[in-house]
Each structure stands twice: as structure tokens, then as C-alpha cells.
Amino acid sequence: MTPAIELNDLRKQYGRRTALHGLTLSVTPGTVFGLIGPNGAGKTTTLRMLVDIIRPTSGTARVLGTDPRTGGAALRRRIGYVPGELRMEGRATGRRLLDFYTSVSGPVSPGRIDHLAERLSCDLSRPVRTLSKGNKQKLGLIQAFMHEPPLLILDEPTSGLDPLMQREFLGLVHEARQNGQTVLLSSHVLSEIQQAADEVAVLSQGRIVAAGAVDELRLGAVRRIRAVLTDADPNAVRGVLAPLSTSTPPEVRAQDDRVIVHATLEGEIDPLVKALARFHVAELLIEEPDLEESVLRLYGSASTDTPTAMGGE
């Protein structure tokens, strides 16, 4: 089976600065592939090469079996693309803009645009220049999904969307996968990738530092914990938390008649819950740290020569 996307030793330099250090990866048709990493990791550079906005310094890329540099308009019609920095201006309404995109991208099923607009709560009668960032993002998603292309390349697609619309977007991605479409999804939002993607590559400083199936990568293994305990002695709390797998010693402090606990936990959450259950837990907050912290904590700096591969290339 020909990969939907195939990169081989892809490099990009801007003067003396190297943005990509020999990326090699393959995306299986009909899957959702997540590309994650902190700002400056090289995600947007990679995606722009796939649609021939910029060109690699060296290495090769093939998209739907074709070199993006020679595929031209015929290849681009087979791709739905949402850029990381979506710019839409002008007096045209959203509907007129989408009509224009239809003439460029090819046939769109009758009623498809209205169906997507309804799902995303997007008013197509308003001039584009009057729309908020979130509503412009909705238009961008509609133009990417409306012609049901074999490949969707989505760079930070939920930027500016509220949680309800983010959930609707994930529904669109799942439906695209069920229809046999391939989705390449770049995101800062770790939970978004975990819900949507079959496989993932973690980028840091222009290198792939880990890759594989989502459930094989420990992307959710680091969590921030905040607990408020009552009727507890701070020293006793420190004692029961000491054996846990925390990357830094838990911060335990007394405040009035309460004990406040801050910790960063790696691994299973169950031992922490059982340890805190010895006390009266008034509040418990568990959240994932930002993506950059997760990547660097779990996989270290990408300045090392050998990337980590888990379950795939």
C-alpha cells in the first residue's frame, strides 16, 4: 500500500538556522496521524512543505504518491488544508468565499456546505472581515472538509474554537477517518491528539524524538496535582507522598486549617489517590502540563543525536 504521506530525510534550513533535521516518517492511508511538539519544533514548516508553500533544502516528500513540487493544482485539489495562521479578509460573505473555494477545489456535494456550517454554528451571511478569529477558523475548516478530499492537512485547526466546537471538530475527524480519508493533524493540545490520532510523532527542535501508536507513547504520563486537605498534619502528608513517582519533591504547606499539596506526578494516578485517601480531601485537581513541558520531561532535549522510536518509525 502506497503511503498517503512519505518523508525521507527531509531537511530545511533558513540561512544558518536549521528548522528540520532529516525528518523521516510514513502515514498510512485512512488513518489519523498526529504531529505534536512545542513552538518552534518544525510542525508548520513540515506541513507547508507538503502543500508546496515552501520547499525542502534536501530530502524527499511524497503526498498521495506525488512529489508536491510537481503535483501542481491537481494534487492540491485532493488535499484539504487549514494553515496554522489563517488569514481571511475582505467584504465578501462567508458563503461567497466558500463558493470561490468550491470553484478551485472541485465538486462539493449539494447541501454539504450548509451541513458543515450548521454543525459548526457558522453564519455564512456575514462579511468575512467582521468575523472573530473563531468564526474565521470555522470557515477554514468548512473549506478544508467540504469537498471530502483524500487527505486533510490541518495545522492547529481548533485555534480560537470554544470547547463545544472543538468536540464537533473531533467528530468531523472521526467521520473522515471512517470514510477512508487520511488526516494529518498538528496540534499543541495533547488531549486532542490522544482522542483523534491513531499514530503520533513528537517533534522537538526539528527532530522526531518519539513516534508510534498513541497508546504506546507515554504522552499522558505526566500530570500536575493540586490537593487541599483538612484535618491533616503537613509532616504526615509529606511522609505518605515521599514514595510516589514525582519528578520533583511535592510542595506541602499549611494554610490556615488546611494543607495545600502541589506535585508533578509521573505514571499511574492510583497510588496518589490511595495515599491522599488517608486524609480528608476537600479539593483535588489533576491536569496535564503544557505540551512543551510534557515533551521535554518525557523525552528530553532533541539535541541528542539518536531519536527515540516506540512502535514505529
Rank of each mutant, 00 (worst) to 15 (best):
P150Y: 03
E199W: 11
L190G: 03
V183E: 02
V108N: 06
M165F: 10
E192S: 09
V183S: 03
G180M: 01
L124W: 09
A144G: 09
V104R: 07
L139R: 03
R167W: 08
S186M: 00
R95K: 05
F100D: 09
L116S: 06
T93I: 07
N179R: 14
I113F: 07
Q181L: 06
G160P: 04
L98G: 07
S125L: 11
D114E: 15
A144E: 08
H115V: 04
G106R: 08
V173E: 00
F145R: 02
Q194T: 11
S121Y: 12
L141P: 03
P150E: 04
T158H: 03
P163A: 11
S121P: 03
R96S: 13
H147I: 04
V108R: 01
F145T: 05
Q205R: 15
G106V: 12
L152E: 00
A176M: 06
P107W: 09
L98D: 07
P150F: 02
L172V: 03
R129G: 14
N135T: 13
D99N: 13
A196L: 13
L97G: 06
H174R: 12
R119K: 15
G94S: 05
C122A: 15
S191A: 14
R126D: 08
Y101F: 15
P110I: 10
E156V: 02
T93F: 08
I113V: 15
A92T: 04
N135L: 10
E118K: 14
S103K: 09
R96P: 01
M88R: 02
T130Q: 15
H174S: 09
R91Q: 10
L131A: 12
V104Q: 10
A144Q: 09
S109W: 01
Q195E: 13
G160M: 07
L164T: 15
E156C: 01
E156I: 01
K136D: 07
V104C: 09
M146V: 00
L151M: 06
G94E: 01
A117F: 05
M146A: 04
Q194P: 04
L141S: 08
V189S: 08
G140A: 11
V200W: 05
S191Y: 00
H115F: 10
S103I: 07
R95Y: 00
V200S: 11
T93W: 06
K133M: 12
E89I: 00
L170C: 05
L184M: 10
Q181E: 11
V200D: 02
L151T: 04
S125F: 12
R91T: 12
D114V: 08
K136A: 10
F100P: 02
V189G: 00
H147E: 05
Q137P: 02
L139D: 05
A197C: 15
P163E: 12
M88E: 00
G160E: 07
R167P: 01
D198K: 11
K133A: 11
S132P: 08
H174G: 02
